[in-house]
Design a binder for these strands. Structure first.
Lengths: 220, 220
DNA sequence: GATTGTTTTTGATACGAATCAACCGCCCCT
DNA sequence: AGGGGCGGTTGATTCGTATCAAAAACAATC
């Protein structure tokens, strides 16, 4: 695994609001988030945006660019961030010599496909409350997997971005958060969220979360 | 590419209604559709089903199984079909020796991720009419890419399966098809669809189809 | 520290799709 | 020929979320 260091060209800094890459940019490298927080976004011709995912430390971005040598989505930093650039050509070469790397790589791509399927299930079958509960639990789990508090965290994204990801309008996100708070399940202080009764959230998604609440995000 | 024949263990027949694999089955191989038609399906604990895709000749299925050595979705034949089984272990080995194969493989997985992103855009942003128009156009394009008529085809799936894929109920699918027919844009005779004025359908999705109408399906 | 713009909350209303329900056409069946 | 089941269409109604609107909280700027 130390050979992996060889492909890391450099650590690149991206300030809040800046784009690491944009849809249509030539694809040369994958990016692993070292610190910070990103959103990925596809947009239609008429300007409608769909957030396809949020990415934090350890997550890999850019896999969708391999197919066409062109990035298929935007990657925008939601806070000052730090990423590793992994030139894909070098990665491909190394994969041939290091079976375990090739294998790891296939798994990463497959995991992304599985994650996308969970999101489809969410968007296709779940109601607003279920979506938001699944979202909060997913975030909680990913944060705790990285050593942060599971039940006390700060949202890096706006209500509108959450809504875009979940297929809801920002007002609905706001209302639903308020409702959860009124129920005593969470506390909402602007972007500061506390899960007071996560078991109630789990109950909401129990049955309908096809694994999305689990951490299927891509680790580098 | 003739070396590829080496990994094709056998051609396997799957009758209409039968499952090629089911979620939870141990993952050993990918499957390329030779003839026939399949749906892929993830389901939640409480029985809700989400069709994640439809696959026809040349498409590859099972990529989501790599990550966990377990298939993540069902693959059910919607008509009598014929698939090639591609043992994954052998494919991995060959990939090391044949760079073009490895490269091709990465592209295939990436293409699946891009396709999934288009579906997210569809499920998250589009209205019933737009979804159905995008679906018909996508089907049309994939069929014509395989040498079939683009504007005259037979649906292999039920209204319910279309609805599941598009995040709609079967009644809505039926109503929307009827509306398209009333407009003179298509003709509907049970499962036999004719696109009479595809330009009107394109107009409906123009602006909001983030590439889904194009053929981003996985070719073997 | 006032000002401007952005994000969030909350309310009233409208609209789209789900739901509930009835009916039809078709295939299979014995 | 007469059931029975399945898939599909269509209608009436309900429900959930979007939309429109206004105000409050906050952040950025000078």
């Amino acid at each position: 695994m130390s050979q992996l260091d060889a492909v890391i060209r450099q650590s690149r800094r991206v300030k809040r609001g800046e784009y690491l890459f944009r849809a249509g940019d030539p694809f040369r490298a994958l990016f692993a988030v070292r610190t910070g927080f990103f959103k990925n976004c596809v947009s239609s011709h008429d300007g409608r945006e769909q957030v396809t995912g949020f990415h934090m430390s350890g997550d890999l971005m850019g896999l969708d660019g391999i197919s066409s040598n062109t990035h298929g989505c935007d990657a925008q930093a939601l806070e000052d961030s730090d990423v590793c650039e992994l030139p894909f050509a070098r990665l491909e070469l190394l994969g041939r010599d290091i079976p375990s790397l090739q294998r790891h790589f296939f798994r990463l791509m497959s995991r992304e496909i599985v994650r996308d399927q969970s999101v489809m299930l969410l968007l296709g079958n779940m109601k607003a409350e279920e979506r938001l509960a699944a979202f909060l639990l997913n975030l909680s789990q990913r944060l705790s997997a990285r050593g942060f508090a599971a039940n006390d965290f700060v949202l890096r994204m706006s209500r509108e971005e959450i809504g875009s990801f979940l297929g809801l309008k920002l007002e609905t996100v706001s209302r639903t958060l308020s409702k959860f708070q009124a129920n005593g399940w969470i506390s909402v202080d602007h972007k500061h969220i506390r899960l007071l009764q996560p078991e109630h959230l789990k109950q909401l998604v129990s049955g309908c979360a096809g694994g999305f609440a689990d951490d299927h995000s891509a680790h580098a």
